[in-house]
């Protein structure tokens, strides 16, 4: 019994220590990040591999989610003779919830796991150590550009996701099911507020971006450098990111939308 308690306590302390390490890690990476042109080109390269390469999955998922939303929404709304409200339903669910959350989940699976595996492999093949021995801080050279690229890319991907989703909703609702196009847009415009919906959605995605990128990069940097360690850390990245995204989403939704 005592052993069990001691084990539990040790586990808690381990978790606390990992949290502390991750805090020091992000602090050391980002403080005094060089603002040279070379740093910029490293950042651009990361925006490419994190953001641009995630575009396809974001666009395709956004399109389908918008189309499904319109289809489901239509069958419900048509019973009340309220299919005019389809545009507002699609746009509100996308801007407030689906775009930030689904884009972040896809981002965790597509870019987050890749980040963890990449940095983990660099650690396992001693590339990080050798960079340190050359006298270059891998936190600044490898980690910082990836963190900043992640923070930047996800909000953009979220906006693209929402735009494509609304487009998909329009395609199904107006082009296919025959909802009046004018009513579709005007109802949407009267229901969606730029500040309380679009901007809040972007703020959500920014918070998710911080969380996912941080988790992914830290898991890669902190893993046990074996093939098993890499696969475990990659799994952890996706699981932790997903849980954190959903948990944070609840908190943010409660803060942003509860009094509207």
């Amino acid at each position: 019994m005592l052993d069990l308690l001691a084990g539990l306590g040790r586990k808690q302390l381990d978790i606390l220590a990992a949290l502390g390490r991750s805090g020091i890690f992000i602090f050391q990476s980002l403080v005094g990040w060089p603002k040279s042109t070379e740093a910029l080109s490293l950042w651009v390269r990361q925006v490419y591999s994190i953001g641009v390469l995630s575009l396809i999955i974001i666009v395709v998922s956004g399109l389908f989610i918008g189309m499904v939303l319109a289809l489901q929404g239509y069958t419900i709304l048509v019973d009340f003779g309220a299919e005019q409200a389809l545009g507002q339903m699609v746009a509100l669910s996308l801007t407030r919830e689906l775009a930030p959350v689904v884009a972040a989940l896809l981002f965790a699976g597509r870019a987050g796991s890749a980040l963890t595996a990449e940095i983990g492999l660099m650690k396992a093949t001693e590339q990080l150590s050798s960079m340190e021995m050359i006298g270059v801080d891998p936190l600044k050279r490898i980690v910082a550009p990836r963190l900043l690229a992640g923070f930047f890319a996800l909000p953009l991907l979220t906006l693209v996701f929402a735009m494509v989703g609304v487009g998909g909703g329009w395609l199904v609702g107006v082009d296919w099911l025959g909802v009046d196009g004018g009513a579709f847009w005007s109802n949407m415009q009267s229901a969606v507020g730029f500040q309380q919906d679009v901007i809040n959605g972007v703020i959500k995605s920014l918070v998710f971006a911080l969380a996912v990128t941080w988790i992914a990069v830290f898991q890669g940097y902190d893993l046990v450098p074996t093939s098993e360690g890499i696969s475990r850390a990659t799994t952890k990245t996706v699981v932790y990111s997903s849980l954190v995204i959903l948990g944070l989403d609840f908190i943010l939704t409660a803060l942003m939308f509860s009094n509207i």
Partner: peptide
């Protein structure tokens, strides 16, 4: 191009979706 697309999406969300 990615950044441009992001800005385009923001403008679309602002003007066409939220009617700003």
């Amino acid at each position: 191009g990615f950044m441009l697309l992001g800005i385009l999406a923001l403008v679309f969300m602002a003007l066409k979706v939220s009617g700003l």
